[in-house]
Design a protein around this nucleic acid. Structure first.
Length: 975
RNA sequence: GCUCGAAUGGUGGAAUAGGUAGACACGAGGGACUUAAAAUCCCUUGGCCUGAAACGGCCGUACGGGUUCGAUUCCCGUUUCGAGCACCA
């Protein structure tokens, strides 16, 4: 009987749908397991072979867990809001909803062909009102919350609420009306900046003033901040969306701009985000990436008085030990202190410098690290030396980190060193024996000296000389604390997330403005639906695209969106025109899958209590500093609210490596429409750009992508490429001596724009989904990036055919009920052990060889025994579900193999009658001796000693020691 | 620059509480069946040496050391590649 995968796969895919094989529901009587893939953005290019890699890996695990008796949740959905659909809409006028819908349809069709065990009844789409209702809701809850280390004594506090967490903003309002900001610092309230006001001042502020003040504390707040503004995209971007000074999508320049934007106070959760990493099972590299991104650094804030002035300012340093080496101070150009401290004589120079800095983009700063700066004319008094240090302004100091001001210690900081050298400022070394004539000594090791300097009258009674750096840091911090010169402070690199985007295709904010003050639309009126617009571009007045919507104002009397025509009517207020960023919709989708159709809550307490958190999360590591941070933050917030019962949403995370594509290039002689075979080109190495360039008869040739389907091996199909685009139709192709046109190839990320996309549909068509599944897993470890190469796919397909043939005698399905032999049982249980261990460890690439070996062994034994083959079909089910179902049915089962039971491993099947142990002499010569199975050490030792060992091995020497490695090796130490 | 990870045949990759390195697959070579091709099956395949034969010898897991009876595995140093962060004070 032929293995007809096309028929088999079609049949079972239809049957799974008809019988709802993969539908799950909460069942408190059964133990649960939650498997999740990062849901895809449905792009126009469709699915490529890289997408299913993670889906297959998690599907194998989900099916395995189900066979082990777990109630497995394995959902799928779409991250449907996104920039590409919007840009396509701008170009073509096609509504993003229409293209997104079409793309989703295509994705679904492709996914269905691969045979996943998704419960599609739980599908979510981030762009549907029923879904973004809860994205908006969560945002409102953040708006209504502040964060503190501990609650105010007056707050009604439940048990377990003493910990750092988000709390209702009313508690803070209550505190302000009684105490103002006095004593606020002892509660560790997260804030944008430190404000000071009395209760009387608070009460006198009026509603607008109080609302403005509260923005300083809310977890979702409207803030004037420096943002990454991308003029080409017409929107702001979050830090993780900017790579090397250009936008992640499109690669457009990004500049710094001060704008009023919605922000999420992610920084409040920095410590918990860091601590949480210890409790979850992620790879070290991913945890490390997140630690870097959070960037915790312990240091001190120290106050410097300004000379001849009553002003003072605070700096942050991690090197408190270097107080005696400070020779100048530096302010960030954006710092408010700059204007205050600039003297009239220096005003012109400072203004000129600030104008220069403003002109420079983020990219300029990164690409040329010129040393620039200007003196303000003021001096600051060092509290440890009494010296007056000049205060400079320089762009190498960042406004957003620490206090935006530093003390410069050129001897022990390379940036300060470069600055001091450039402007001729003094350099004072503080470590015994260090040489700072050529470069700074940045290492935190050595013995402190010059603190204070010899022969200089000490300003205070304090010395660090003779201490190690570590001791000196601690001693200085203690002195600072005791003498009220500042405070010990922990800083984080992690910034608040900018949450506004000037786009159309995203979640609208459930916010309206009353006298310029943002107010929340009542929860009962959510979701606030995305309005229709006739243009997806910003309005003529520069407002975001939602400004084009005709009906877009909020009627507080009727609680509905009304036509935005009569703002002067006091019951009608304008709505927020920004939309939320991409990460908004993906931040809590795993919770929504638990209870996707609930219109009363994000997730019901019952569903959440049952599914808890994602047990296994599979996705790419490119989300390490984006989605995986935001999602953890979002979940911690919902945990504080009591909505999510687990603090960490993803218990175990596997990063699937990217599958890369082979890109092909043809070379065009510059300025012509003439293409030359790659082997006829002359290679020259370009030292400046560090890459090869190619020349033909002295003219430079430029690489042009050729679609992978037009190339076999490295030979181009010229006839085919002529039909591809007009530019090739008329082109002149210069072939080599054997008449072939060769291309050059490179391994790159698989992408539509690189024309190297391999589509899984073709593989399914030619080899079947089961072969695709096996082959993708066989390619190598899941975590590793690897180029797609179909060369080995025949091997996987051949295995499935051999497997199929084990069950057939010509055209009859021939299974016997005979008792299995010892050898057959051994093959079976070896396989059970290996496959079970491999799946648990996610090393599927090694269990496929195990299947091949077992199949070969059993084929050689001509085994057609039900007792052996039936369990093997179950073992294969996670990997190749279609063929497993077909064989399972042929065996006479009426239920799906998905409801079978994972075979139990019987160790006794692997026990040998004898065990062979190697004998080593001083680790050199070896031979094997057979012992009875289970022999004890004494028996082994006496058997070895009794063995004929002379003269070949002992040669008159004595055995001084016998080392027995159980089951493996007997070591004889001989002298 | 800092942090983390990796390096094994022609290729993808197996093998770690330290115990016969190269499983399995691809590719390559040879053979069987066939008029032929496809398909299928069998043999060989890290390098070198000895030999009629191999259940013979030597060298081999990036490089140099170390620990050990024994190291792909553990430790130290070097090189190369990859990833993350990068004026974060």
């Amino acid at each position: 009987m032929e293995y007809n995968f096309r028929e088999i796969e079609k049949k079972w895919q239809q049957r799974w749908v008809a019988q709802q094989t993969y539908r799950v529901s909460e069942d408190p009587g059964r133990k649960k397991f939650y498997v999740l893939n990062m849901f895809p953005y449905p792009s126009g290019a469709g699915l490529h072979v890289g997408h299913p890699l993670g889906y297959i890996a998690s599907d194998i695990y989900a099916r395995y867990k189900r066979l082990c008796g777990y109630n497995v949740l394995n959902p799928m959905g779409y991250d449907a809001y996104g920039l590409p659909a919007e840009q396509f809409a701008i170009k073509t006028g096609q509504h993003p909803a229409v293209t997104t819908e079409a793309n989703i349809g295509r994705y679904r069709e492709q996914l269905d062909k691969i045979g996943f065990s998704f419960d599609w009844s739980r599908e979510v789409r981030t762009c549907e009102p029923g879904y973004y209702h809860w994205t908006q809701w969560a945002f409102q809850q953040m708006f209504k919350s502040y964060y503190s280390e501990r609650p105010f004594p007056s707050s009604a506090v439940k048990a377990g609420e003493q910990r750092p967490k988000a709390r209702p903003i009313e508690e803070l309002e209550d505190y302000f009306s009684n105490h103002g900001t006095e004593g606020l610092d002892q509660y560790g309230v997260a804030q944008s900046e430190e404000l000071t006001f009395t209760a009387a001042e608070w009460n006198a502020m009026g509603w607008e003033g109080r609302q403005q003040t509260l923005m300083n504390y809310r977890l979702a707040y409207l803030g004037e901040t420096m943002v990454n503004w991308c003029p080409a995209l017409g929107t702001v971007l979050a830090n993780d969306e900017v790579v090397n000074g250009v936008s992640e999508r499109g690669g457009y320049p990004v500049e710094q701009k001060r704008m009023s934007q919605w922000c999420l106070r992610v920084s409040a959760y920095a410590q918990r985000l860091l601590d949480g990493l210890e409790t979850i099972d992620w790879t070290d590299s991913l945890k490390e990436t997140q630690r870097n991104w959070i960037g915790r650094s312990e240091g001190a804030e120290i106050v410097f008085r300004v000379k001849d002035s009553d002003k003072s300012f605070t700096i942050f340093t991690t090197r408190a030990d270097t107080m005696f080496g400070v020779t100048f101070m530096v302010l960030a150009p954006e710092s408010e202190l700059v204007q205050q401290l600039t003297t009239p004589e220096q005003q012109a120079a400072v203004d000129e410098y600030l104008a220069y800095v403003k002109k420079r983009t983020e990219r300029d700063r990164i690409s040329d690290r010129k040393v620039t700066g200007v003196f303000t004319g003021s001096y600051a008094i060092n509290p440890f030396t009494g010296e007056a240090n000049p205060i400079w302004v320089a762009e190498y100091v960042l406004a957003g980190y620490g206090t935006g001001a530093i003390m410069a210690v050129p001897a022990h900081d390379s940036r300060d060193y470069a600055f001091a050298r450039h402007f001729g400022l003094p350099i004072v070394p503080l470590v015994e024996g260090c040489d700072v004539s050529e470069e700074s000594f940045d290492a935190k090791e050595g013995i402190v000296c010059n603190s204070p300097r010899e022969g200089v009258e000490p300003y205070i009674d304090f010395s660090l000389n003779g201490l190690t750096i570590k001791e000196a840091i601690a001693a200085t911090k203690q002195y600072v604390r005791e003498h009220n010169l500042g405070r010990v402070k922990v800083n984080y690199r992690l910034r608040d997330a900018i949450f506004s985007r000037q786009r159309y295709w995203g979640e609208p904010f459930p916010v309206y403005y009353r006298n310029g003050v943002p107010c929340m639309i009542p929860e009962s009126c959510l979701p606030l639906e995305l309005p229709e617009v006739d243009k997806f571009l910003p309005t003529e007045t520069g407002e975001p695209p939602l400004g084009n919507a005709k009906c877009w104002a909020w009627d507080t009397k009727e609680f509905r969106v009304v036509e935005n025509t009569r703002i002067d009517n006091e019951t009608v207020f304008p709505l927020e025109l920004n939309t939320m960023p991409g990460f908004a919709g993906s931040s809590a989708y795993y919770l929504r899958y638990m209870d996707p159709h609930n219109d009363q809550a994000l997730v019901s307490p019952e569903a959440d209590a049952y599914w808890q958190a994602v047990d296994l999360y599979v996705g790419g590591s490119e989300h390490a500093t984006g989605h995986l941070i935001y999602s953890r933050f979002w979940n911690k917030f919902l945990f504080d609210l009591g909505v999510s019962c687990k603090e960490e949403p993803f218990q175990k995370l596997i990063n699937q490596g990217m599958i890369q594509g082979w890109s092909s290039f043809v070379y065009r002689v510059r300025g012509t429409n003439r293409f030359v075979s790659f082997d006829l080109l002359e290679e020259r190495y370009d030292e400046v750009n560090k890459r090869s360039t190619y020349f033909h008869e002295g003219t430079c040739c430029d690489p042009v992508y050729a679609d992978i389907s037009m190339v076999s091996g490295n030979v181009l199909n010229v006839a085919k490429i002529r039909q591809w685009t007009p530019e090739f139709r008329e082109a002149d192709f210069v072939t080599n001596a054997s008449g072939q046109f060769l291309v050059s190839q490179a391994i790159e990320k698989m992408s539509k724009s690189k024309y190297n996309v391999v589509n899984p549909d073709d593989i399914c068509e030619n080899y079947g989904a089961d072969t695709l599944r096996l082959y993708e897993m066989f390619l190598g470890p899941i975590e590793q990036a690897k180029p797609w190469d179909v060369a080995g796919i025949d091997g996987s397909h051949r295995f499935l055919r051999k497997f199929w043939n084990m069950f057939w005698e010509k055209d009859t399905f021939a299974l016997t009920d005979d008792a299995p032999s010892r050898d057959e049982l051994k093959s079976l249980h070896k396989l059970i052990k290996k496959v079970t261990e491999d799946i648990e460890a996610f090393s599927y690439n090694t269990s496929i060889p195990a299947f091949m070996i077992a199949t070969n062994e059993l084929t050689q034994l001509k085994c057609r025994k039900r007792a052996v083959l039936e369990p093997i079909v179950v073992l294969l089910t996670p990997f190749a579900p279609h063929i497993a179902e077909e064989l399972w049915e042929a065996m006479g089962h009426t239920t799906s193999v998905c409801d079978a039971e994972w075979p139990a491993f019987d160790a006794s099947a692997l026990v040998e009658d004898t065990m062979k142990m190697m004998v080593a002499f001083n680790g050199k010569t070896r031979f094997g001796i057979d012992f009875p199975a289970g022999a004890d050490n004494a028996t082994i030792e006496s058997t070895v000693r009794a063995h004929e060992l002379t003269p070949k091995y002992l040669d008159g020497k004595q055995i001084t020691k016998v080392i027995i490695v159980p089951g493996r090796m007997v070591n004889l130490v001989v002298k």
